[in-house]
Nucleic acid binder design. Structure first.
Lengths: 229, 229
DNA sequence: AGTAAAAGATGACTTTTATCAGGTTTTGTC
DNA sequence: GACAAAACCTGATAAAAGTCATCTTTTACT
């Protein structure tokens, strides 16, 4: 199997004809593949990035530290997803930190290639725009959830999100292994409250757990909790 | 003073040379100016928009109703600001409702003109992209604030935001008149908690009020509250 | 496999925030 | 300017969530 980095960015850009053969070749010629071990930092809040990362394998958490010192996970990115594009486009330092949750393989597209396409390739730019419009819509929804839903509703919503957006493992468990603290940071609550909520969901047979792994047993009931029923 | 609608979109796009003379003329020829009275709805969540609105005068709140039935204000838009661009770009129904907080004058750019420029004018698209990247960064920050800050911190942050982003009136009060309930919906809390917080800030001489109007008296102290000091 | 460190779990308690209920003031309209 | 409606404010209480302390289990490492 050849190096699929060029495919990864194309797929991510969600458009089949965005890049011409020359651009593909240019990107392919200049890309760098990097590896990160579990727990290693890809980049930190405030750093100036000089390119976009594209995840080839493994999972990373994108988080932001509040003034209170608590971390909030804004997104989990896995295979095929780009990270860092927002700050490259805004031409400013990144507002997020990225830490590997697994051993990862990441390919790196230098800023210059992005910028070049941004200026010359309308379709490329349009696709990025649509992508970002979607991220923004998602963010609006998250703001409302954070502001108005209970911890239980948000935990349920987070589990549902993880279950639908990451491939399940062979036993049907959610395919991303997060610590309880990471889940709490994704939900925006304290570790203890998160654990208690998971315990209560388990007692109600809505989920089952095995170590860190979580399996959703009753989707309908989980959905009702999300809706506040 | 002539009709400044074409200027408004250009200014909003935050770029001086985005639109050529022909495009400007095309937009200018096809625009429609509409008026909305205080309390009227510009559009509602789920509606399909067929163009972008551009605020010429007055103020509007963009909000979203959660499944719990409570409204969350996501943004306040005033003179010069565009609304509806996200859903036009995503080509889907809008995820927000817009209600006039004042009597408003709004101009309307039909979808076709936006789409045409989106396909032919890289600079136009690039500018929209940068704009949206900025909105996204702002949304990330808001998510963290909602998840991790207390009501008092969020009220303080909201007041600071309103004070810096909208022109003050002649007496130095914040230039947008919101009900306490609107402020609560912006902060993401209950009306009563919002009122109590404002009362406490007033007692500490950090703000003063006169009816609905609010004036910030001690910026430094307000800033400390935002930081959680 | 043994051990230390990390993560998970749970109870007790405190703080924050929501909710309900009732009064007061402001605002808009005839 | 009188009246009704809306908005504002406050107190009491309940519910939700955070914090702290402690113990158990799991994981990582030599």
């Amino acid at each position: 199997m050849g190096n699929r980095c060029e495919n990864c960015i194309v797929r991510q850009l969600n458009s089949l004809k965005v890049l011409g053969k020359e651009e593909l070749k240019a990107i392919s010629d200049h890309k760098i593949t990097r590896k990160f071990k579990k727990g290693e930092s890809l980049f930190s809040e405030g750093e100036k990035l000089n390119g976009i990362f594209c995840v080839r394998s493994g999972v990373t958490k994108l988080s932001k530290i509040s003034e209170n010192g608590k971390g909030q996970i804004v997104k989990i990115a896995s295979k095929g997803e780009m990270i860092g594009q927002r700050s490259i486009i805004s031409e400013e330092q990144t507002n997020l930190s990225a830490v590997a949750l697994d051993d990862m393989e990441v390919c790196f597209i230098p800023k210059e290639h992005i910028m070049k396409n941004l200026s010359s390739n309308v379709e490329f730019t349009k696709t990025l725009l649509k992508h970002m419009a979607n991220d923004l819509k998602h963010a609006d929804t998250l703001i409302v959830n954070m502001a108005q839903k209970t911890v239980k509703q948000r935990v349920a919503e987070t589990l549902s999100y993880l279950d639908t957006n990451f491939e399940r493992d062979l036993d049907g468990f959610i395919g991303v292994i997060l610590t309880r603290e990471d889940i709490a940071n994704l939900v925006g609550t304290a570790k203890e409250a998160c654990i208690r909520t998971l315990t209560s969901l388990r007692k109600d047979n809505i989920i089952s757990t095995q170590g860190k792994r979580i399996k959703i047993e009753d989707k309908k009931a989980l959905y009702n909790i999300i809706q506040g029923i």
